[in-house]
Design a protein around this nucleic acid. Structure first.
Lengths: 193, 193
DNA sequence: TAAATAAGTGCAATGACTACACTTTCGGAG
DNA sequence: CTCCGAAAGTGTAGTCATTGCACTTATTTA
């Protein structure tokens, strides 16, 4: 990777860092894109070359999510049902944050997202964007037609369950209860998957 | 109801009508609030006194939805489970559109909403806004604590299923399959509800 | 009828985002 | 090594939704 790409990644990172710091300090709505650009010492135009919108500044990840989601279904250990695999995958993401929870930065981060409507919505949309891919993976895993309704429904429900789990003080228990609803019906229509 | 309120309702209606007509004609993004205000012969300021935002111009209803949703659960006929009641309620809303489907206006309307990201998102948020109320109604109906997770999950899943059903060419079948997933698990944890 | 209330208006501003025309800086093909 | 084109970055000027403010006008209501 040449100097060029390194510099690019560097600018992007500087923007993301500056944004998070400012948002945490003053609150999302009290910070303008101009402020972020200035703090990262680039122009506003450049900021928008790197991030599609103000909200995207906070979610630097996004790209890997879909792959991980699909992999969780495709490469689930034998004997584990698809709903179970999804439940564990979503819990893991939650847990990763929990690991870092000692760092108050992460607690603040999730609080920021949950308390800022624009960010909450964006996060939801971000996950929903991968629904189609997940539905396809599920259908493939059980040998159903690509547009099978119950596969699409499972995908949608699992993603909808995510933020429910995230908000709950006891994620493990919340996940168990929410997915219990799904596992039964899934087992009934797709035995041994 | 005095003349004042009548005029107010009239202006509101003129705005909603003008907006829908223009949006259908040119597409949502190709119409500015200014255009809508002009077409309804009021100022932009007035437009925003009546509607919270551009998207709200299209969804004139909203208020009755929550009440109807809660009622569907609370006043379900005896012997019908809560998931069943919700499925029928959502289908009914779908059917209502279908009834008017002869009028090409309604087909165009739903297409407009589904094809415009801003409107699709807004519609989703609109329904999600009533999730808490629905969850409470469900919890009350089964005598569970108000913050019971599986009740909250059922509420969320049912609302998430809505747009899935809406998009499907065969709503009835889609609803059956999607809710089949929920009914089993629900029956297991809440017998006879 | 007078005072309070609410609808409606025009204007100016903010803030996110885009289009454009430009400069600088790498990276690779010859 | 050099030259050329792609890609990063810049500044300016604009669009568009949305808000705040001070104002007029119509309708209630006391």
């Amino acid at each position: 990777m040449g100097r060029r790409e390194r510099k690019k990644a560097q600018t992007r990172q500087a923007l993301a860092d500056a944004a998070l710091e400012l948002f945490l300090e003053r609150g999302y709505d009290q910070v303008g894109v101009k402020d972020v650009a200035d703090a990262a010492d680039v122009s506003v135009t450049t900021l928008f070359k790197h991030f599609a919108g103000k909200e995207a500044l906070v979610f630097d990840q996004d790209d890997d999510l879909e792959a991980a989601l699909v992999a969780a279904v495709r490469e689930r250990p034998p004997g584990r049902s698809i709903p179970q695999a999804l439940r564990e995958h979503l819990l893991l993401h939650q847990t990763r944050f929990a690991v870092h929870a000692a760092d108050p930065r992460f607690a603040d981060f999730t609080r920021l997202v949950q308390e800022t409507p624009a960010l909450r919505d964006y996060s939801q949309r971000m996950w929903t964007r991968h629904e189609a891919a997940l539905a396809r993976a599920v259908a493939e895993a059980v040998g159903a037609p690509e547009d099978d309704v119950s596969c699409a429904a499972l995908a949608r429900f699992a993603l909808a369950a995510r933020s429910l789990i995230l908000q709950h003080p006891e994620p493990r228990r919340a996940a168990d209860e929410a997915f219990a609803l799904l596992e039964q019906g899934w087992a009934a229509s797709h035995p041994s998957n």
